[in-house]
Design a protein around this nucleic acid. Structure first.
Lengths: 196, 196
DNA sequence: ATATATGGAGTGAGCGTTCACTCCGTATTG
DNA sequence: CAATACGGAGTGAACGCTCACTCCATATAT
């Protein structure tokens, strides 16, 4: 049935996410993915053309999920600063609450997969729904109203995503503990870096 | 002779740096390293126990080189703020001037090699000379004199290294062009994020 | 009965590493 | 001053292993 089909596909996607997060791309062979998903090796290739496509689909699903999660809590009545702080706090909290998803994303964006995806998006202006799109909106609004520094979009991204990803990584690796208090002052520091 | 010995070893280290930077760890097989270095495959194992040790030695050499470069320009009469800005600017400039070294370092720190090294250093207080040691000194001085925000060391690192690495990557990938002007305002933004 | 879905042994390419061998500069011998 | 023996750096074909992916016998659904 269609339902079972979906179950198998979902199992494979989940197994891939977990194994890549735990051991990296090269520590997640197809045989291991199949075993964790409870399917045969060949079954993977019924649902995905090859391993690359499988990786891309895991990424796409995660991106949608994170984007949806962040947008679900956005309050329109927030001030600009409040929306910025909300975005950073919620993203950081999501990442440390979902370490496997974070680790997969890290692997992805530090590989040719992620680099090519970014290149396409930057140079083709394709506004595919992704969490960076939310931040892009924040950037454009902030620039329009003169609330943030006069820097290019990607510098703004570097100032926001850079620290957030570094902090999330160190928390997940157990190098530091990010509690609500620390997240608060950390995000405040991020705001200081971009505000005019 | 001793000189020729060193030449071979240096050739292997350089070839490894370049190939890992260009194609990643798994795109730099020993056969390719040997070919680029102009030596036989077996010769690699005369100088290095295994591929892991080769990778570690490349990292160690780079770390020393960068550290030395940054320290060479440090002026003691600089104010605290000037020293912070100098550190960030020079580090960023070095990274974009040496894209292969940057890419190798990125690969290294995003792999189990780098994670284990960081873990050892964080939990053993081993003060091996590395560029993060310079920043650690800046952190301690800043905290002592109440010039920077009251955050833990690793949060300070995240606020400084995070944006710098993100910006360097985007420049090297050709997504953005960092000229002196932009580096100036970018580093200024980093300072805003850490200053009290 | 036919069509579709599944599983996993099999395949060949590519990997890190080894080891039997080749030089060739130096030491020893007559 | 030859002639000879030696040691160890240098080499790359070969090895054992793992990988992504294929293919077809079997199971399930219609």
């Amino acid at each position: 049935m269609d339902l079972e089909k979906k179950d198998k596909k979902e199992s494979i996607l989940l197994a891939t996410l977990e194994l890549v997060a735990e051991h990296g791309f090269h520590g997640a062979p197809t045989a291991m993915i199949a075993e964790r998903a409870g399917v045969g090796i060949g079954t993977i290739y019924r649902y995905f053309d090859d391993k690359d496509m499988l990786i891309y689909e895991v990424h796409r699903e995660l991106e949608l999920k994170i984007c949806e999660y962040i947008l679900s809590g956005f309050q329109e009545e927030y001030s600009y600063r409040q929306r910025f702080v909300y975005f950073c706090s919620v993203l950081l909290q999501y990442l440390i609450d979902n370490p496997k998803e974070f680790k997969f994303m890290e692997q992805f964006y530090n590989s040719p997969y992620g680099v090519e995806l970014r290149r396409d998006r930057i140079f083709s202006e394709a506004p595919e729904c992704e969490n960076s799109c939310i931040l892009k909106d924040l950037f454009e609004q902030g620039r329009k109203h003169g609330l943030i520094k006069d820097v290019p979009l990607l510098i703004f991204f570097a100032l926001v995503f850079g620290p957030i990803i570094a902090a999330a990584r160190d928390h997940i690796l157990g190098f530091i503990t990010l509690d609500d208090n620390l997240i608060g002052s950390f995000v405040e520091a991020c705001w200081d870096s971009v505000k005019k």
